[in-house]
Amino acid sequence: MKQIILMRHGKSSWDYDVSDKDRPLQEKGVKDAHLVSNTFKLHAPNLDFAFSSPANRALHTSMIFVRNLGLDFSKFRVEKSLYDFSGDGVQHFVSNLDNNLHTVALFGHNYAFTSLANTWGDQYIENVPTAGLVHITFGVDDWSRISKGTTKQMVFPKHLKK
């Protein structure tokens, strides 16, 4: 069985005159990333590896998640192909993952993550919000064979706030 955790980066700031890749998280984005990762860790599967887009906002989100889940940093890598908004680059990356990895977390961007959550999962999601997490399981043992899986869990910040 393969499992994938898709997590969209936290809310980013437009207050700085920087390139898209260099945009930082807002304070809200940091808080939401902590909230979602701390909620997810209560029922999280053991992660084999985590991969992040090189964009600052995704990388910062992934660092919060990795620390809160206690994942060893030797099981983390920045992956250029996750700086993708269509989903094609992410899909290609996943299909070429090492089959010794069973559960992976990916940190990246919309529209890619909403599209893939709907392509791979069995529950329609109108939009994966910033700092939103979608956990999908697949009944195959080869990453190149994943298609329709089961949406096991969705953790969105708005559902966690009172």
Rank of each mutant, 00 (worst) to 15 (best):
M7I: 14
Y16A: 06
L116S: 05
F76P: 05
A50Y: 00
K28R: 15
S19G: 13
N100M: 08
V155A: 03
Q153C: 09
A33N: 03
N127S: 13
V104F: 02
V90I: 12
W14G: 01
H135A: 12
L35Q: 02
S86P: 04
H92S: 15
T130P: 05
F49H: 14
L69D: 03
G87D: 04
F49L: 09
W14I: 00
A112F: 04
V90N: 04
F85K: 07
I136W: 10
M63P: 01
K75V: 01
V155W: 06
L82A: 04
F138G: 12
H92A: 13
S144C: 15
A50L: 07
F156V: 00
K11R: 11
G149W: 01
F113D: 05
F93T: 01
S62R: 03
P45T: 12
Q91C: 10
N46T: 12
G108P: 00
T150C: 13
S62G: 05
V36Y: 08
F73G: 02
F76M: 09
L82S: 03
D17E: 11
L47V: 02
I4L: 03
I64C: 05
M1G: 11
S53W: 01
L42N: 14
L6M: 11
P24W: 12
T130V: 07
H102L: 08
L97Y: 06
M154L: 14
R57I: 09
N110H: 06
D98E: 11
H102M: 10
D20A: 07
W143R: 09
S74Y: 11
L97V: 08
G70I: 05
K31D: 11
K158W: 08
Y111M: 08
G132E: 02
D72W: 01
A55G: 05
W14E: 02
G29H: 04
F51I: 11
V134R: 01
Q123D: 10
P45Y: 08
L69N: 05
K152M: 12
T103F: 03
D142G: 05
L133G: 03
D98H: 10
S115D: 14
L106D: 02
E126I: 06
I64G: 01
V140E: 14
V128Y: 03
Q3F: 03
F51G: 06
K161E: 13
G108V: 00
A131D: 05
S144I: 15
S52Q: 02
T39R: 08
Q26K: 14
D142Y: 06
H159N: 13
T130I: 07
M7R: 07
F49K: 12
D32E: 06
